[in-house]
Design a protein around this nucleic acid. Sequence first.
DNA 1: CTGAATCCTCTGGGATACTG
DNA 2: CAGTATCCCAGAGGATTCAG
Lengths: 137, 137
Amino acid sequence: MKPIGEAATPLLKTNPGFVFDGGSCPVREVLTRIGDKWSLYVIFTLQPKPMRFNELKRQVEGISQRMLTVTLRSLERDGLVSRTVFDTTPPSVEYRLTTFGQSLAQPISALGNWAAENRSRLRDAQARFDRDQGQGS
Amino acid sequence: MKPIGEAATPLLKTNPGFVFDGGSCPVREVLTRIGDKWSLYVIFTLQPKPMRFNELKRQVEGISQRMLTVTLRSLERDGLVSRTVFDTTPPSVEYRLTTFGQSLAQPISALGNWAAENRSRLRDAQARFDRDQGQGS
DNA sequence: CTGAATCCTCTGGGATACTG
DNA sequence: CAGTATCCCAGAGGATTCAG
């Protein structure tokens, strides 16, 4: 009996077969892990302060409850986020970035900076490309 | 959708207006663009030197021909990669990173460095998590 | 050699309903 | 409040085929 689900319909892919060979590109490994639709946003949102589930869900508005759960589980599994349960009358769970998770936020910031600085250039290039394609120069 | 960071964006202090929004969050925009399965690898592979299609395909081994074509088109559209056709008897096309593309390689390297340095820790955390889950205490 | 087009599969992920 | 379990669909991407 697996806690997360049967092999047929796994909520989380804790499947051990996903690991590539030892010599694989680490970038690929990392991007495969946190390059999904929500991980980075959750990490970012948790950076300022720990949050509870619903608070987090509100902040990362747009995320479905399922994906928030899945994403948090993944991040927890990676040791990037810690999960603390308070067995109060209304159950509350606090999620917070670990030091490890905070360290990941650094390189992500670099990418974010690049993105912020070059977004317009990117869009411009796209527009030009599309225009040229249409007219055939 | 809606911004999840409110007005406060504590992580990227260097970038005002760095908000997680589908339309205004540059990180999301960039990741949506080059956060696919192959773009980064192609950029990486092209970083040392320009390459032709098949050579590139060999280097990024594992990529399908279709995805290489699609990926290159996207990168070209974004102005990250330039495409030069040599109308020789056996047609050859050279792809090379633009200066713009090279600049993107920088932040990606930061992420890559983090990945390389923390891969074992990541795996360890995953293994521990999975083990704990499996035993169910 | 370079690439476009088609087919088809697999999985990410949203909506929803149900537990404790 | 904090999840968990199903259903289901869109889209990414591999394999294959055709074309310049």
